[in-house]
């Protein structure tokens, strides 16, 4: 169920990002839509409520590459995402359903609680 909602949500996000930035994101965006068929995140994982302070600390590993103010040149913006979209996206890398060497490496050592904490922190950043 959640994967269907997510696919349409990601599609909408991808289209909006494509409109914003016709360069750089196209390949990533098309991967997002095509390679995650059937990927689902369990209700237990989605129910975890993260710790925003811990998320802020963990976020420093993300902001070396993902621009903290939400620019998306070459690397997607991760600020202001709905929590469930963020959790789903990170788990899709962690499980290998979505492929990107850096994102797979980073997410494979994040616990479910750490992903929830990152999600709640980045949701709170509005640019």
């Amino acid at each position: 169920m959640y994967n269907l909602i997510m696919k349409s949500l990601i599609l909408v996000l991808s289209i909006s990002i494509l409109c914003l930035n016709p360069f750089g994101f196209y390949v990533l965006a098309s991967e997002q839509v095509n390679e995650e068929d059937g990927f689902e995140v369990s209700d237990e994982i989605l129910a975890i409520v993260g710790d925003i302070d811990y998320g802020e600390y963990l976020s420093s590993e993300c902001t070396t590459c993902h621009h903290a103010q939400g620019l998306d040149e070459g690397i997607p913006s991760i600020t202001g995402w709905p929590i469930e979209s963020f959790v789903w996206a990170l788990h899709s890398y962690k499980s290998g359903a979505r492929n990107h060497p850096i994102m797979e490496m980073i997410t494979q050592r994040l616990s479910n609680e750490e992903i929830a904490s990152l999600a709640i922190f980045f949701e709170s950043i509005n640019n």
């Binding site: 902001t63 070396t64 590459c65 621009h67 040149e73 070459g74 690397i75």
Partner: peptide, 14 residues
């Protein structure tokens, strides 16, 4: 390559 451009913007802002 495009990812490296994003990284440069990200790390210099960081």
């Amino acid at each position: 390559y495009e990812e490296s451009l994003g990284w440069y913007a990200g790390i210099t802002s960081d």
